[in-house]
Amino acid sequence: MAKSIRILLAITAWYDYEIWQMDVKTAFLNGFVEEEIFMDQLEGFTTVGEEQKVCRLQRSIYGLKQASRSWNTHFDEVIRGYNFIKNDYDACLYKKISGGSVAYLVLYVDDILLIGNDVKILGEIKAWLSTQFSMKDMGEASYIIGIKIYRDRSRRLLGLTQSSYIEKVLKRFNMEHSIRGLLPMRHGIKLSKKQSPKTDEKLKRMSNIPYASAVGSIQYAVQCTRPDVAYALSFN
Score class of each variant (00 low, 15 high):
Arg80Pro: 12
Ile121Lys: 10
Leu9Gly: 00
Leu42Glu: 14
Ile5Tyr: 01
Leu42Asp: 15
His74Ile: 08
Val24Thr: 12
Asp118Cys: 13
His187Leu: 14
Gly216Met: 07
Met135Asn: 04
Thr47Arg: 09
Leu183Tyr: 14
Lys3Phe: 10
Tyr94Trp: 10
Gly159Arg: 09
Lys190Glu: 12
Glu140Tyr: 15
Arg172Met: 10
Val222Gln: 11
Ser70Asn: 07
Pro197Asp: 02
Asp137Tyr: 02
Gly100Met: 15
Leu8Val: 03
Gly31Asn: 02
Leu93Glu: 00
Val48Leu: 13
Gly81Thr: 02
Gly181Ile: 09
Ile37Asn: 04
Asp152Pro: 04
Ile149Phe: 08
Val119Gly: 11
Asn174Ser: 12
Gln132Trp: 07
Ile97Asp: 04
Ala103Phe: 02
Gln21Cys: 07
Tyr165Met: 00
Gln41Ser: 00
Lys148Phe: 01
Lys65Ser: 13
Val169Leu: 15
Lys190Gly: 07
Gly81Asn: 05
Gln132Pro: 05
Ser98Val: 13
Lys194Gln: 11
Asp152Gly: 10
Trp20Lys: 01
Thr73Met: 07
Asp111His: 08
Ile19Phe: 14
Asp111Gln: 08
Lys86Met: 01
Lys65Ala: 09
Arg205Lys: 14
Asp200Gly: 11
Phe75His: 01
Gly188Leu: 11
Asn30Leu: 08
Lys120Ile: 06
Thr199Ser: 14
Ile144Cys: 02
Gly63Trp: 01
Asp23Tyr: 02
Phe32Ala: 05
Ile85Lys: 11
Leu157Thr: 13
Phe133Ile: 00
Pro227Gly: 07
Arg80Asn: 15
Gln21His: 15
Lys194Arg: 15
Thr26His: 09
Arg6Phe: 07
Met22Phe: 02
Asp16Tyr: 11
Ile115Gly: 01
Ile147His: 04
Ser60Met: 15
Arg186Asp: 12
Arg69Trp: 06
Tyr211Met: 11
Trp128Ile: 09
Gly81Lys: 03
Lys126Cys: 04
Arg186Val: 14
